[in-house]
Design a protein around this nucleic acid. Structure first.
Lengths: 249, 249
DNA sequence: TTAAATCATGCATGAAACAGCAATTTATGC
DNA sequence: GCATAAATTGCTGTTTCATGCATGATTTAA
């Protein structure tokens, strides 16, 4: 394994868990603790993490906060949210997924917008509970702590009996050959069920996630109506998706 | 647990409660009081809190934001939570309701306690998602915005098929003639279902709510095993409940 | 004033970090 | 392709750090 690759894994792990132990990383990456420590030291000197005795933590002060200011790449996500907002109309019944981009979207919903939102994300439900005119229905299930989303297989049955005007989902990866993909199997099953009962499917993905693969298939491109990115919709990277009939914003 | 992580937990606790006791932190974090004291000393030297005899307080610049009676109410709830905590054992499957007293209870659950918690309260689920060893299952449904609880009638059917070692519920009112009562009809139905599938029923109620009536019946006193209040369990106000076979803490 | 709780200090222990060295892998020049 | 230099990695012994416990001092509350 390459050094840079290993450090990338360390960083992504860190951003998920908010903290890492040198001993855990050593076991997970199959290298000595010394190597891990050297990596952490290097990353710390670049300011990418905060090294502490026994491991490392994210640099942000508040270990357990999901406040807007802490959102990674906030600017990009706000740009995507603004584009997605145009797709929403009064009285819509929407399913909104988890993730920071969707969090951004629900944060900018106008106060006079009256819609119904189904979601499996706790932070999104909490945020929407502050909105005067939006009805929120939360899917239940076992809480995935890292992502703070609730997922139960019973729920998938329940979902298949309903329908929605549109769904807004983030993405772990997508490409022209396979379609939309997810890291977790449970999440892929859930999203597939959601896609199947939504009249319109809107995928929100930063350009860096586009044309990357993940382990589990959600659905093929033919199910996707709109792709929202942070960048120029006319960029050559996205032309393939346009040709497949997807509206790119 | 990392030292920095522990200090982050201390700070987040402090900002919520406005003051903390070394002994409480020691119990919650499963470290000696010496360690807590050293942490507090270190954080105090960084100006992140104000160390006082027995614990710590938030720094004076934020002091304006807390009122004496808030702290007083809070102390009552903390006292109830501590009593209730004694009833919880490792590997229990619990149902925990909404409300600030239950929030207090989940806030003081020790870090090494491994239990399964079902809840319909979003804030409780969010808080528990920070806990390393607790599995959280969220009941879904329509969000009642004021209380931030999710309630659906389908859920009641779902609940009736499970069972739990114990449930911890707050109370809108209870008396010797009728039993436990609720303001909202939906909540009363939900609580009734929960009571029916729990081996032990623990009601947490401030003494001011005891001997008051509400509109909708949840269950009779015979279903209640334990009553937790903030005050003296031997007070004459509670003797009637003891005579009915309820353990009063 | 007195008893209990809380605190500071020193010390012991185990874990983690570090420095230096040797082995291995990777890059570079010829 | 081969030799050499550079970087990376793991190992050893030593040093530093984090923590709990014992002891005696200090503070608090009755």
């Amino acid at each position: 394994m390459l050094k840079g690759e290993r450090q990338a894994i360390i960083l992504s792990h860190l951003h998920e868990e908010k903290k890492v132990l040198s001993s855990d990383l050593s076991a997970k990456l199959n290298v000595s603790e010394d190597t891990v420590r050297r990596d952490l030291k290097e990353l710390a000197s670049e300011g990418k993490l905060l090294k502490v005795h026994g491991g490392a933590m994210i640099t942000s002060q508040n270990l357990y906060s999901y406040r807007e200011e802490d959102i990674y790449e906030h600017d990009k996500k706000l740009a995507m949210a603004k584009k997605a907002l145009q797709l929403i109309e009064d009285n819509d019944v929407l399913i909104i997924g988890g993730g920071t981009t969707n969090m951004e979207l629900v944060s900018i919903l106008p106060q006079d917008l009256g819609i119904t939102v189904f979601t499996y994300s706790l932070p999104i439900a909490m945020r929407l509970s502050e909105h005067p005119k939006i009805d929120v229905i939360l899917f239940g299930g076992k809480l995935m702590k890292r992502a703070q989303v609730a997922i139960g297989l019973d729920m998938i049955q329940y979902i298949s009996k309903m329908r929605a005007d549109a769904c807004f989902l983030g993405s772990s990866g997508m490409d022209l050959d396979t379609g939309l993909m997810e890291i977790d199997w449970e999440v892929s099953q859930l999203k597939r069920a959601i896609v199947n009962i939504s009249d319109k499917v809107v995928i929100m993905s930063t350009t860096e996630k586009i044309d990357t693969k993940q382990r589990f298939l959600v659905c093929g491109l033919e199910k996707i109506n709109t792709l929202v990115t942070e960048g120029d919709p006319n960029s050559p990277q996205l032309s393939g998706y346009k040709k497949r009939g997807i509206q790119v914003l």
